[in-house]
C-alpha cells in the first residue's frame, strides 16, 4: 500500500512536462497562468498609450473624428467583430476540451479558431487596401477631401497604429495557434498538462477585448452624424 503510494507520487513528480525547478504540476500551472496575466497587464499599458492619445485628440477634434470615421467600412468592421467574438468562443471551447481531455475536439476547435483569425486578417487586408486606394495612408500619400485634413490625418494615424498593432497581435496569436495545433495533434496535452492551451487562450481573448474597444471607438464614432 505504502509502496504503491510512493510510486504514484513518483509518477506525478516525474510528469514529462514538469520542469526541474518546480515542486509539482500544480505549482507549474499556477506560475504559467500568473505569468500570462502579468504579461497581459503589460499589454494593457502598451495599448493604453495609444488609447490615451486617442482620447486626447478625440476630445480636441470631435467633429473631425466623426467625419473621418465615415471613411471606415462599418460593414467590414462589424463582420470582423463577429468573426473575432466567434473565434473567442471556439478558443474557449478548445480550452474546455483540453481540460476534459478530448483530443479530437481540441484540435478541431483550435483549427477553427485559427481559421477565424485568418479570416479576420484577410478582411483587414481588404480594408487596408481600400484605404490605400482612397489615399488615406497618413504621411505617405494622404488626400483627404473633407475639412481639416490635418486633424483627420491624426484620426487615420491612430486608426492605423491601433488596428495595425492589433493585427500584429493577431498574427502572433495565429502563429501560436499553429504550434498548439501541432502539439495537440501529437497528443502532448492532457487534463494534467494543458497550460499552453489555457494561457494561449487568455492571450487570444485579450486580443479580442482590444478589438471590442477599437470597433466602437474607430468605426462607430461618426455613425450618427450622417455625412
Amino acid at each position: 500500500m505504502a509502496q504503491s503510494e510512493v510510486t504514484a507520487q513518483h509518477a506525478i513528480a516525474h510528469h514529462p512536462a514538469l520542469a526541474h525547478h518546480f515542486e509539482n504540476m500544480e505549482q507549474q500551472r499556477e506560475a504559467s497562468t500568473l505569468g500570462m496575466w502579468v504579461f497581459l497587464i503589460t499589454e494593457i499599458m502598451f495599448f493604453g498609450g495609444l488609447f490615451l492619445a486617442y482620447s486626447i485628440y478625440r476630445s480636441w477634434y470631435p467633429q473631425v473624428f466623426a467625419e473621418a470615421s465615415h471613411h471606415l467600412d462599418i460593414l467590414l468592421g462589424g463582420i470582423n467583430t463577429v468573426v473575432l467574438i466567434t473565434s473567442s468562443l471556439t478558443m474557449a471551447l478548445a480550452v474546455y476540451h483540453s481540460q476534459v481531455g478530448n483530443r479530437g475536439k481540441l484540435v478541431l476547435f483550435l483549427i477553427l479558431t485559427m481559421l477565424l483569425g485568418l479570416t479576420f486578417l484577410g478582411i483587414k487586408v481588404i480594408e487596408y487596401s481600400h484605404k490605400f486606394h482612397d489615399g488615406l495612408i497618413p504621411g505617405i500619400h494622404f488626400h483627404y477631401e473633407g475639412p481639416h485634413p490635418q486633424q483627420a490625418q491624426i484620426f487615420f494615424w491612430l486608426y492605423f497604429a491601433m488596428t495595425g498593432l492589433h493585427a500584429l497581435h493577431m498574427i502572433i496569436g495565429v502563429s501560436i495557434l499553429a504550434f498548439l495545433i501541432y502539439f495537440a495533434w501529437r497528443g502532448r496535452y492532457s487534463p494534467e498538462y494543458h497550460s499552453p492551451v489555457e494561457i494561449s487562450g487568455l492571450y487570444w481573448h485579450f486580443v479580442d477585448i482590444v478589438w471590442i474597444f477599437l470597433f466602437p471607438l474607430l468605426y462607430l464614432v461618426g455613425f450618427h452624424v450622417k455625412g
Binding site: S88, L89, A92, G201, H205, D208, I209, I212
Partner: peptide
C-alpha cells in the same frame, strides 16, 4: 467584462 469573467 463578460469575456474576462467567463472566457478568461
Amino acid at each position: 467584462t463578460l469575456v474576462v469573467l467567463y472566457f478568461m
